[in-house]
Design a protein around this nucleic acid. Structure first.
Lengths: 334, 334
DNA sequence: TGTCATAGGTCAATCGATTAAACAATGTTA
DNA sequence: TAACATTGTTTAATCGATTGACCTATGACA
């Protein structure tokens, strides 16, 4: 920048203002400055600018875990929105470890990010957010938003899927197809997503007057779904086992579908499967997966916006899910 | 930092040195300073430090396209290695657009990154790298490394899979199973990955004295594989069509497998399929996919290292692939 | 006792940009 | 013609940390 100024014969201040098209600068000098900038191959130092302005165009995005592709789908939309808003992504992957997450938040603050989009690791409490939120009584140091997974009693903006509703929709879909013995596969009690979806499903089943659903908690992995499906199908006779499964996540549903095929049958005829998320591949596996679609783009984009302009207090937004009927839920005979 | 200095009763310079455990500072003052730092909730401003030091711990990582999950698998390993080395990730997703890629490289330089890991968008030339490499005769402004996809004649460090070998291995596997009519599905001429894999396969087929393989180029999408499989199976009688397909990427292979199942048959009995990449789900679909495994961790980690410490001139590293025999390749009858 | 090394700090410049306030030149108004 | 706006630019402080040069006790040695 000094070079430019010298080249044109003005001061650095003028050059700075000229480059930012400040109204106080005459058009002539501005063009001269911009030309010189190009000619000299000038590279704007955003970090220096941020330092002076004590605000930053860098936004931290922390994924609890990248092994579940659905989080990458969120990431894509968050990144798109941020870029559209002239922000940059400072990425962290917490690998489901609370300490990694805290460390990342710490470096994010050190790097001077202007906002944070967080898919929290399971078990996250206020204490783990201390790097961004040292004083409980005040607001976080920078606009911070939780997406996809909620954290209760936290007074933080959150953008979530309406997971309770999603669970209900899944159960209702199965019930409408005549299923009476339904099993819940996957999840656990340690994320709001899993808790809410399960609670929603349980509620719908209770409301329909059906026996309480069996619950099989487990990790969000294809492998778990695959093993679960095979185990269920091994149980003696169709009378002794559920006819349909609600999977906490599509990832598990994919595994179940594969497991069912490996057992030599198909989902619709032996064990109906409904997933949740509507991941990209859901319609492209065989047979195509019936699932509850989560508005990943809506959540990602709104989350990104909230990380830029702090929304009022603790706004919890829940976007409605949508039922996608495909081929893995069959009508119960009789 | 000023607050700390005042609190302890030293100058800012001393505080700075104390926090970095400079030998000139006595243990006593150091502990006093560190204590004060904790007590006052001090947050290290890495950007300011980088500004002064004119070097940065931020490393740019640019993905050509996040819709192919294999790039996310690379990302995970790159991130892990960078974090291990005390660096941070500045992420960009180019959505397969050259302009987005150039824009990202520009912002990366503006942000003052210390290195760049790039999976280049198809069609990338030196001109598109100008933001990082303005002067052709000199080195890039910061250590820059290409991973996964190579760019010819570029005098840049590259860490790649040995794609030619991968293509050869795939073809040899099919040939060993008795296949004579083999079709190539996916890819094109615009990435080194696709070109090399295809060339490797073609070579193996020629060497075996078999008729040249049919080629069906197309986008790296499940959908393309699915449609391709159905189209191939619709051709009149087994005599008139290939008995095996080499897919440019697992993603396409997944689609083909689904398409074959939708046609009411299975890969091993009607159209053998071999993929390339060995994505996480390859072993968890039904039937499990035979594929050529790419050393994604090796490439990701080595790439990350090269972006930190510039390796000698233009080092092109090709990591060897590995054949993973699973269930989608069948023996040809007769 | 005078000289010198050493330990432990302080001073002040610096990285690259931004910005409030001061200033000079020109035009405008009473 | 004197007082005042207006326009375009410069001056100098600032963001937060780092660092080479300089300074001051204290103890060691001749």
């Amino acid at each position: 920048m000094r070079d430019i100024a010298e080249d044109v014969g003005v001061t650095v201040a003028t050059a700075s203002m000229a480059l930012r098209a400040h109204p106080r600068i005459s058009p002539q000098t501005r063009t001269k400055v911009t030309e010189a900038a190009v000619r000299l191959g000038y590279i704007y130092n955003r970090a220096a600018a941020n330092l002076r302005q004590t605000r930053s165009s860098l936004i931290a995005v922390c994924l609890s875990d990248a092994s579940n592709p659905v989080f990458n789908e969120f990431l894509i939309h968050v990144e798109a929105e941020l870029r559209g808003q002239g922000r940059q992504v400072f990425l962290g992957i917490a690998r489901d470890e609370l300490t990694l997450q805290s460390q990342f938040l710490q470096t994010a603050m050190e790097q001077g990010v202007g906002g944070i989009v967080l898919i929290p690791v399971r078990g996250t409490t206020r204490a783990h957010l201390r790097p961004v939120w040292p004083d409980e009584r005040a607001e976080p140091l920078v606009p911070t938003v939780l997406i996809s997974r909620g954290l209760e009693g936290l007074n933080l903006p959150q953008v979530l899927n309406d997971d309770r509703r999603a669970g209900t929709m899944a159960a209702e879909c199965l019930i409408a197809h005549g299923h009476q013995r339904i099993i819940w596969v996957g999840g656990g009690q340690d994320t709001s997503t899993a808790r809410d979806r399960q609670a929603g499903a349980a509620q719908a089943i209770a409301q329909a007057g059906l026996p309480a659903m069996e619950v099989l908690h487990g990790p969000t992995l294809r492998r778990f779904g695959l093993d679960a499906a095979q185990a269920i199908l091994k149980r003696s006779g169709p009378a002794g086992r559920p006819t349909a499964a609600i999977c906490f996540s599509d990832l598990i549903a994919f595994g179940m579908v594969a497991g069912i095929l490996r057992s030599g049958t198909t989902p619709a005829e032996s064990l109906s499967v409904i997933g949740c998320d509507d991941m990209e591949e859901a319609e492209l596996i065989h047979p195509p997966l019936t699932t509850i679609a989560v508005n990943k783009e809506g959540i990602g984009r709104l989350g990104a916006q909230h990380a830029i302009t702090r929304p009022g207090a603790s706004v919890v937004t829940r976007l409605p899910p949508r039922l996608i009927l495909r081929a893995t839920v069959g009508q119960v005979a009789g």
